[in-house]
Design a protein around this nucleic acid. Structure first.
Lengths: 225, 225
DNA sequence: TTGCCTGTTTACTTAGAGTTAATAAAAACT
DNA sequence: AGTTTTTATTAACTCTAAGTAAACAGGCAA
């Protein structure tokens, strides 16, 4: 069962930062692996094959830039996304970082919100989740026409309902945490009450008539026909 | 069925610019391909056959100008539109760029609005060529004669009304965001009030008498008979 | 000039999407 | 069992987006 948004390796020698980033990433459904120095980062990268590697530039044993260069020299990591954490707002360092093939850099002090939005942006890019018509058995979800069809019968959903259903149906079987749903459908900055998602889920269930959204108590929701 | 506004290849070595441009382009319905250096740009251009190529002049491996010359030497890219991104406001570079056959150049720092207006301007130019008569059931829309017929009865629409109806009817069922409508019918640089589109929609509905335009609240409008 | 048409804005109304709050039900935990 | 936590289900409320009518400015023709 694929339950994760993606695998992320964080390498930083400061335990506090490691903790904060790990907390935020897990919270949005990412699987997290951590390392405390350059060597460990490189070793764990090879072993766990993460989708994204977050590298602190200043680390013991090997700097982030060195790790990045090592990784990029191996074909297995040509496609892996890399984000640098730069302590100093040192432009030349940043440019050097990006030249070694990093996808983005975040300068400390880190704002978890900013960091997460960068991460999500990168993952959105590789997931190429462009508006595609979804077809699951007798159910079709067409974002272009903003139309849901069940057994060739049209069902009209409101905007939020549609977006929510589309998100879940994008990866049938995968559990979406409530936080993820909030971020994807509402946006990271919007604050809505705890019960709002439930209400929308209910409306979708009601309109579709079929039980295709399963509740995973204490975790979130998943689409299943 | 063609669902995209057009395909755009962006080549720039700065991830930030890539992201911003990609975001804005996707937002307005363009399909986006990206490249980070000259070689990748040329390779992806050949592979994906974009309608428009945005080339940064200063890029690793091959400069934008070199890529442009290479492309223009191939018959397949005689018609492809090319926009240069110039870091410096260097006149001689710009002139050289345009001499190699580029359609436009934008100098950094880039204003997304300006950039998009240039892109849309170029696309509008090539799209205007295909003014086809639309026939949907008992309704015909003839852009040449500027005439709408319903059950063989002529209906006189004003210019904006006609353009709006034509846009929607071009892809029946497809939802057009208000932004898209504004860009296509009015142009991106024009600023009109929030209710302007509604008023025109209303007039069309009134004149046609048939309910062929559906509103998707919070999203946009779509044509449907 | 007048008058008509188009395109736009303004102001008001309306519908209904989205949210909340309150209560009930269902798991999970002791 | 009882207690706590989490979700379901409503109904009520809020507030935004779209509908509508009227008015206004500019253009063009008679």
């Amino acid at each position: 069962m694929e339950t994760t948004q993606g695998k992320v390796l964080i390498a930083d020698d400061e335990p506090d930062i490691l903790e904060i980033l790990k907390y935020n990433l897990s919270n949005e459904g990412y699987e997290v692996v951590t390392a405390r120095d350059g060597d460990e980062a490189f070793e764990k990268a090879k072993r766990t094959k993460p989708d994204l590697i977050v590298l602190d530039i200043m680390m013991p044993k090997k700097t982030g830039v060195e790790v990045c260069q090592l990784l990029r020299s191996q074909s297995a990591f040509k496609e892996t996304m890399i984000i640098f954490l730069t302590a100093v707002n040192d432009e030349s360092t940043q440019i050097k970082g990006l030249e070694t093939g990093a996808d983005d850099y975040v300068s400390k002090p880190i704002s978890p919100k900013v960091f997460m939005s960068r991460v999500n942006a990168l993952f959105r890019r590789i997931n190429k989740a462009e508006a595609k018509v979804l077809k699951i058995e007798n159910l079709t979800i067409d974002p272009e026409r903003f139309l849901v069809t069940l057994d060739n019968k049209e069902i009209i959903l409101a905007k939020k309902e549609f977006e929510l259903l589309y998100l879940l149906a994008l990866k049938p079987g995968r559990v979406f945490l409530r936080n993820e749903i909030l971020n994807q459908v509402w946006g990271n900055d919007v604050i809505v009450g705890d019960r709002t998602i439930d209400v929308h889920i209910r409306k979708i269930r009601q309109k579709l008539g079929v039980d295709c959204i399963t509740t995973v108590k204490g975790v979130g929701y998943k689409f299943e026909l």
